Amino acid sequence: GISELPDTFEELQDACEKLEAIGVTPFGIPGGLTARLAHSFNVALGHHDDPTAFIQQLRSGEATCADDEAFNQWADFFEYTIQHSTDDVLTCDDDAIYTLFATEQVAMIQAGSWCESALKEINPDLNIGIIPMSINNNEDENFIAGDAADGFSIAENENTELSKELVAYWALSDTGVNIFKEYQMIPAMSNCKYDASELGQILEEADQYFKNGEYFGWYWYAFPDLTADLQFGAIMQSYISGSIDKQEMLDQFDLKIAELEAKSQQ
């Protein structure tokens, strides 16, 4: 009974009601993986005009997750997905949700193009696509999160020249360019031509979002600790377990950010 893909939170809720009416669980969530949970946390960051600048405000104490509109919308969305998921969220890893999804026991999972080959191994006939994680009712704000397969060099590093050679190999050699096709990735290098239809169903759809500018990137790298995503994910696990409520989850994000910032100044 779902004729169009949901673009807003209300439309998503309506779709979930229809799924549950025919005995399908809406969501499969890999709650056992803190990094995957942080992919959801990243959506709240992406709903800001300048996510990196917002993170700087969080780090300086000028802004808080608890008082931020996007984070509160995201928290409501996250709460809803947990309420309409399988009962074993905290013990689910990628393999578990891939199996649930590929056998059509759940309708939606939070994942990316990396999962398509695993899903098709379980069910070669699976018909899949991609939609934004819609945390509010403004469809113009609900984009997908993701990026192209990119290579980068760190300036003033003892291995900078070597890393430049590697990036050049990816971008300029026939073998390097074919790596993106072999591993089914959209290349970031503009000279690397690709056919999205050859990269699987997920990336074929995602490519249209990218070309329309309807996407945002990954932002936790702007925090002073490269394990920040894992630490945010651990707080989300505490919420899933019921040891903290939704407001306490947001408050603990703020405390964790302050803790990470203080450590970076030592």
Rank of each mutant, 00 (worst) to 15 (best):
150 D>T: 05
207 D>I: 02
33 L>Y: 02
103 T>E: 12
151 G>P: 00
31 G>F: 01
245 D>R: 00
76 D>E: 14
239 Y>M: 15
186 I>H: 05
140 D>F: 03
73 Q>D: 15
75 A>F: 01
63 A>R: 15
159 N>L: 14
251 D>I: 08
210 F>E: 00
91 T>I: 10
59 R>M: 05
131 I>E: 01
145 A>R: 05
114 W>N: 07
51 P>V: 07
231 Q>P: 05
35 A>G: 10
2 I>L: 00
184 Q>A: 06
206 A>R: 09
37 L>G: 01
128 I>W: 10
31 G>W: 00
170 W>C: 08
109 I>Q: 04
263 K>I: 14
168 A>D: 04
163 S>Y: 00
41 F>N: 12
126 L>H: 01
190 S>F: 11
181 K>V: 15
248 E>G: 11
162 L>N: 09
210 F>Q: 08
128 I>D: 02
97 I>A: 01
126 L>I: 11
123 N>F: 01
215 Y>F: 14
231 Q>T: 07
182 E>P: 09
153 S>E: 11
186 I>K: 02
231 Q>M: 06
90 L>Y: 07
19 L>Y: 04
250 L>M: 13
212 N>E: 12
187 P>N: 08
167 V>S: 06
141 E>N: 10
17 E>P: 03
34 T>W: 00
104 E>F: 01
130 I>S: 06
112 G>A: 14
194 Y>Q: 01
26 P>H: 02
226 L>M: 13
229 D>P: 02
16 C>H: 03
13 Q>K: 15
227 T>N: 15
120 K>L: 15
3 S>V: 03
54 F>D: 03
129 G>W: 02
113 S>D: 15
